[in-house]
Design a protein around this nucleic acid. Structure first.
Length: 543
RNA sequence: GCUCCCGUAGCUCAGGUGGAUAGAGCAUCUGCCUCCUAAGCAGAGGGUCGCAGGUUCGAGUCCUGCCGGGAGCGCCA
């Protein structure tokens, strides 16, 4: 519809002798229903060049417009110079038919067909289970991936993890210590570098499977055990949330494939690396940083920065049309260095988008939930799922903008689950399912003779208009990678349905009207379900 | 001290490309089920959009400077 109006207005501008080529004609949905269905400010944009009053320009444009009455029933000038358009009822019934026809595919677009994107997110290191704060990134990333797919992208879902370096040794040492304690040996608290209960669990599992035969096993054994078992925990949690990854890319690979050395050589060749104090430094000051950074420690071990650079180089070389990194705000500092280093190796980075999400704080009964890894006092993502449920987790974490700090009130989510916004949406779906069951029981499930033109009630019209905006909001959410837009849309969609339900009885004596309303219910159900699919929440038939 | 994010109703937060009268949920108050799910609907109260300038026909939205909160500034990741 917007495309149609754009064409018409462009023609009108040409007819008026106004320069229209460089102008992007924009539309928006007026906030006030009285102002119609679509609004454009084009007359105000043109007024300055034309040196005329915007309302006069609007009048001239309107005079040249010849609109199809089957699409637009009215066009009028309003306010300081807006031109408001009203949809014709034929357009609405056609849109409704389209929803029912396209079904599970309604809202999908092939706008980005043939383009590939790599999305990297979660990427927690296998030193323990995911904690509750990880949930935000888990859910944001998963939703962004499905939004991208819905708009045509071919998505590779990727998880990068660091399984080399000192932290893995700390993990191994901690597990070995707990294991030796089970064998009755005296242990030192200094060797318990990770204090979580899961360390003891891993030690117990090893003990159960191997008794005391690992008493003098090398640290490497415990490192491998730790990595595998921690990863099993992480993946179990992701599974529970139906979050999947196609590629698990680990730091070890970069060493075994020689990529680390390649990158170091390349950086040296570019002269952005130097040796000092037995360490190797990257001249990050040349990239605008306040000081240079170590990339290889005096021990000979690289810091995280070097493999990060090598990893990004690999991602670029693998040839995606687009690369998206999703990080928490606590990892923001390394990004400019990594991208700059990659650029010095003559690789482009313009197709890399970095999405930063702010931290989450958890509140319980008005008290901040303290989390300390050292003491092992951690609120895990598993615990959060147990406490508030999968759907609430998936929805709560994406309903706010990533740039905003998120406060997650556990007590509220536990105690007032009935007021939970996700239930509001699911209730609308369950309510429709219930109506459809009732309709079938009354022998009125036949849609064949539905005359959609019978839908003329204010609430019916409002609901249809809401439904036909779904594809647009999917597109906006995907393009901006801002998941909260979809949540806001679905909420207003559910509100429109609840109001319709309140105002209009679906199953009545009037079979023709009932059939039309059943069709409207089915279309609403379809839109909700498609939205739920993107978000990853359940669409219940009963509640 | 420097970099990034945020500041909108009592609380938690929406406000896509600058547009018409700034919204939702929770909380408070008032109505609505002999009828397809009241986990719902309708309505009321509640705001100097942190402060001060600037850009322009028009700023919650863009720019600058302050104030306040968060994150980072490691031979941790």
């Amino acid at each position: 519809m917007k495309e149609y109006l754009k064409e018409q207005i462009t023609e009108a501008l040409h007819a008026l002798g106004l320069e229209a080529d460089g102008i992007d004609i924009q539309f928006e949905k007026p906030k006030v229903a009285d102002h119609g269905d679509l609004s454009t400010n084009i007359a105000m944009m043109m007024a300055r060049d034309a040196k005329k009053n915007p309302r006069v320009v609007a009048g001239e444009i309107l005079g040249k417009l010849d609109l199809d009455p089957a699409r637009i029933s009215a066009a009028e000038i309003a306010g300081p110079g807006f031109i408001n358009f009203r949809y014709a009822s034929e357009h609405l019934t056609e849109a409704l038919e389209d929803i029912l026809l396209r079904g599970d595919a309604y809202g999908r677009s092939d706008a980005n067909a043939g383009k590939t994107v790599n999305v990297e997110w979660v990427s927690a290191n296998p030193t323990g289970p995911l904690h509750a704060g990880h949930g935000r990134q888990v859910c944001i990333g998963a939703t962004i991936c499905s939004l991208l797919e819905w708009t045509g992208w071919t998505v590779t879902r990727e998880y990068y993890f660091n399984n080399a370096g000192n932290q893995m040794n700390n993990l191994a040492t901690s597990i070995r210590e707990r294991y030796l304690a089970l064998l009755g040996e005296e242990i030192s608290d200094e060797n318990i570098l990770y204090a979580g209960e899961y360390i003891a669990d891993i030690a117990r599992a090893i003990h159960q499977e191997h008794a005391d035969t690992k008493r003098s096993a090398p640290l490497e054994y415990f490192r491998k055990q730790g990595e595998e078992r921690c990863f099993a925990m992480i993946r179990a949690t992701l599974d529970r949330l139906s979050v999947i990854h196609d590629v698990f890319y680990n730091e070890d690979t970069l060493y075994s494939d020689g990529k680390i050395d390649e990158v170091l050589t390349a950086l040296r060749a570019k002269g952005v690396v130097y040796d000092k104090d037995e360490a190797v430094w990257l001249k990050t000051t040349e990239f605008g940083a306040d000081k240079d950074r170590v990339i290889i420690k005096s021990t000979g071990e690289p810091t995280y920065r070097l493999p990060d650079i090598a990893y990004h180089r690999e991602k670029i070389v693998r040839g995606f049309d687009r690369i998206i990194d999703i990080f928490g705000a606590d990892h923001i500092a390394t990004i400019p260095d990594v991208l700059a280093a990659v650029r010095t190796m003559d690789l482009r980075t313009e197709h890399i988008d970095v999405i930063i999400h702010q931290m989450v704080s958890f509140v319980n009964e008005g008290e901040a939930v303290k989390m300390s890894k050292r003491s092992g006092n951690v609120y895990y993502l598993e615990d959060l799922i147990d406490d508030v449920g999968i759907d609430a987790v998936r929805f709560f974490f994406i309903m706010r903008g990533a740039n905003s700090h998120l406060e997650f009130d556990i007590k509220l989510a536990q105690e007032q689950s009935e007021n939970n916004p996700v239930y509001y949406l699911q209730y609308a779906h369950a309510r429709i399912a219930s109506i459809l069951r009732f309709a079938e029981q009354e022998g009125m499930a036949d849609l064949a003779q539905a005359q959609l033109a019978l839908l003329a009630h204010e609430s019916e019209i409002a609901l249809i208009k809401e439904l036909l905006r779904f594809p647009e909001w999917v597109e906006i959410s995907a393009r901006t990678c801002e998941t909260q837009h979809l949540c806001t849309y679905l909420h207003s969609c559910a509100t429109a349905f609840h109001k319709f339900y309140h105002d209009c009885r679906v199953v009545t004596e009037d079979r023709a009207l009932s059939a039309a309303r059943i069709a409207l219910c089915k279309a609403t159900m379809q839109v909700l379900r498609n939205g739920f699919t993107i978000i990853g929440i359940d669409a219940p038939e009963k509640m």
